[in-house]
Design a protein around this nucleic acid. Structure first.
Length: 598
RNA sequence: GGGGGCGUGGCGAAGCUGGUUUAUCGCGCCGGCCUGUCAAGCCGGAGAUCGCGGGUUCAAGCCCCGUCGCUCCCGCCA
């Protein structure tokens, strides 16, 4: 049967349209039968329109209307009518009008829903993902995917305007063993050989620089076979960018401009023209991580010198072991209960901290409770308490929290986790507030205790900062790279670096991380080969589109801004992937499944 | 690989330390009433082997063991 095709959408009719004959297509969002009169809310991507079946409608029309249930897909013809003043719904875009039904055509029916299509749908995530097609009908999901589209569009608009070319790179590539685990694709034509899905287009974009495409970008799908998190999926999308003949600050400026454009175009927000820059070491010391949430201060302090004057043996031992004692002040929270402090301690322990010490500042600045006996009292340096309070900027009514550890990193991360939890608990994390910052001066190398060797902290093509070039081999741990991360509200939004374009320097880096010429040749031969032919100085960055949209949408999981995400075990709940394949397929691919022996 | 949390009609929850239920409530579903609602309202009804398996007990949704699934986190993510 021919269906009545819409002449208008469900979001566009206004009082000015009164009297027009229209056809609407959409889904039954709500159904209110009052006996004599029936109201239908018809929904599509554009909005909701109220349809009325008047008391004097034909018996046939009333019978069809009575059949309608949630989410039936229908075509409705009728006449637009301005609602009487008292019946206007000001919360509804089309609330000033209604459509008086003259004909209703049921296009398809809908079974009882597994959950309601509603803004405040409280179905569990697993169920939402299994029936994602229904979940995506909700206005909240439609709004988020629309935002994602608009962000992607604004990115292309901005970068194309700056002279960038969007160039696609392959998704079947050679596996490179460094970094995350690869997803592999078996080759039918070459028994035993595999393609890998790219963890990022890194090598290809650098080669495009060799080719002279000095401003490249791509909204690139990336694949990493690692365990998922709220902000990590097996496949995700990067705004991949690379430029030639640039220095670090050119890239930072470009991304500042890009973010400014995206926020202005999509959210109508003006960002500051430049973002603050924080050295990696400072970020670790002040916030306990390299992706600080800067919507609130509450920075950590090193109170090692005060700890040494105290009688707290555990603190002194931590310092003697080469560690640190870190403290933070929670303003006006001396009334925190034992239970609340224990909850904070639990978050510190996640990062291997042994405990969370605390003291309260009472009237006249007296230290009270918890660890106070180690800092004030008989036989203790009489100015210690006032000196400490002065250094911390703490006063009466404040709570002081401390973590000590023989490993400085553990003290920082432990107390940093406490700081993050406090930020959430105390309501400092307004999702409508966007605090960007650059984290710069990352270390080039990290020592792998297990394998007793140096590893690249970022990747092996990162340029070490000029001033360390002479001491690369003698003191690798001190070398800072020309690296930069963009952080936003406690999330790493982008990571990038200036790359090495000098083959000699590249060889030295390979050698420090234990790559001999042969390793380099097998693993990255095509890149080193390309770099023999006049590679330009270049660098780049890759903001994560999913995380960016997630934060802009006020969400805390990227699943909320991906149409069809995987669950936390990398399973697609809707299509039930991954799954077994036919024996014939395996045979074609020269693959035999081996049962795991226990 | 490790830790926290969860699993009760289609959905979301309650069920305190085992014994008042015929396992409760809201939404949805089915039937009925209702001429201005917009999360419509009112009346009635159906629907659950309490994730699964085992154990303890006179008695298990509740306790124990195992197992499966989901979720968050640590590790991992150059």
């Amino acid at each position: 049967m021919e269906y009545l095709k819409r002449t208008v959408t469900c979001g566009e009719l206004a009082v000015a349209d009164a009297g027009k004959s229209v056809v609407l297509n959409g889904w039954i969002h709500r159904h209110r039968d009052h006996g004599g009169i029936t109201f239908l809310n018809l929904r599509d991507r554009y909005g909701v329109t109220q349809v009325v079946i008047d008391a004097d409608a034909s018996a046939g029309l009333k019978a069809t209307a009575a059949e309608l249930k949630f989410e039936y897909c229908v075509a409705i013809s009728g006449r637009v009518r301005a609602r009487p003043d008292a019946m206007v719904n000001r919360d509804m875009g089309t609330g000033a009008i209604e459509v008086v039904a003259e004909g209703i055509q049921i296009l398809s029916r809908c079974e009882t829903l597994p959950f309601m299509i509603d803004e405040k749908s409280d179905a569990k995530e697993d169920l939402r993902l299994t029936h994602r097609y229904l979940d995506l009908r909700s206005f909240s999901m439609q709004r988020k995917l629309r935002l994602r589209h608009e962000v992607a569009f604004a990115v292309r608009e901005h970068l194309a305007g700056k002279g960038f070319f969007e160039i696609e790179t392959p998704t079947f590539i050679k596996s490179t063993p460094e970094g995350a685990r690869d997803y592999l694709v078996p080759s039918r034509l070459y028994p035993g050989k595999f393609y890998a899905l790219p963890q990022s287009p890194q090598l290809y974009k650098q080669i495009l620089m060799v080719s002279g495409f000095d401003k490249y970008f791509q909204l690139a799908r990336c694949y990493r076979d690692e365990d998922a998190r709220g902000d990590r999926q097996p496949e995700f999308t990067q705004i991949d960018i690379e430029m030639s003949f640039v220095k670090r600050d050119d890239i930072l400026a470009l991304v500042e401009g890009l973010m400014g454009h995206v926020f202005r175009k999509t959210l109508g927000l003006d960002l500051p023209p430049t973002f603050r820059r924080i050295a990696y070491d400072d970020s670790m010391e002040l916030y306990g991580n390299d992706k600080p949430d800067l919507r609130f201060g509450m920075e950590m302090s090193d109170i090692g010198s005060f700890a040494l004057r105290s009688t707290f043996q555990a603190f002194k031992e931590a310092i003697a072991a080469g560690g640190a004692v870190k403290a933070l002040v929670v303003k006006g929270k001396a009334d925190y209960s034992r239970k609340q402090i224990e909850e904070l301690e639990a978050s510190a322990k996640i990062f291997k901290a042994k405990g969370l010490a605390w003291m309260k500042v009472g009237a006249e600045g007296r230290l009270e409770g918890g660890a106070s006996k180690f800092f004030a009292g008989e036989g203790i340096d009489s100015t210690l308490a006032t000196d400490l309070l002065g250094a911390l900027g703490a006063g009466p009514g404040d709570l002081i929290l401390m973590v000590a550890d023989g490993k400085r990193k553990v003290a920082n991360q432990g107390l940093g986790a406490v700081r993050s939890k406090l930020g959430r608990d105390l309501g400092f994390c307004d999702p409508a507030c966007f605090e960007f910052a650059w984290i710069v001066d990352f270390p080039m190398f990290e020592y792998n205790e297990d394998e007793k060797r140096w590893e690249a902290a970022h990747h092996m093509f990162t340029m070490p900062q000029e001033k360390y070039h002479s001491t690369l081999e003698s003191d690798p741990g001190a070398v800072k790279g020309d690296l930069y991360d963009l952080v936003l509200n406690g999330f790493e939004l982008a990571s990038g670096s200036i790359r090495i374009h000098d083959p000699e320097l590249q060889k030295r880096i390979f050698s420090i991380v234990g790559f001999d010429a042969k390793d380099a040749e097998t693993k990255f031969g095509f890149l080193t080969e390309a770099f023999k032919y006049g590679p330009p100085p270049h660098g780049g960055i890759a903001p994560g589109l999913d995380r960016l949209v997630m934060l802009m949408a006020g969400e805390t999981s990227i699943k909320e801004v991906i149409a069809f995400p995987k669950n936390s075990f990398a399973v697609g709940p809707m299509d039930d992937s991954p799954n077994f394949v036919d024996a014939k397929q395996l045979e074609d691919l020269h693959i035999r499944i081996v049962e795991k022996k226990e």
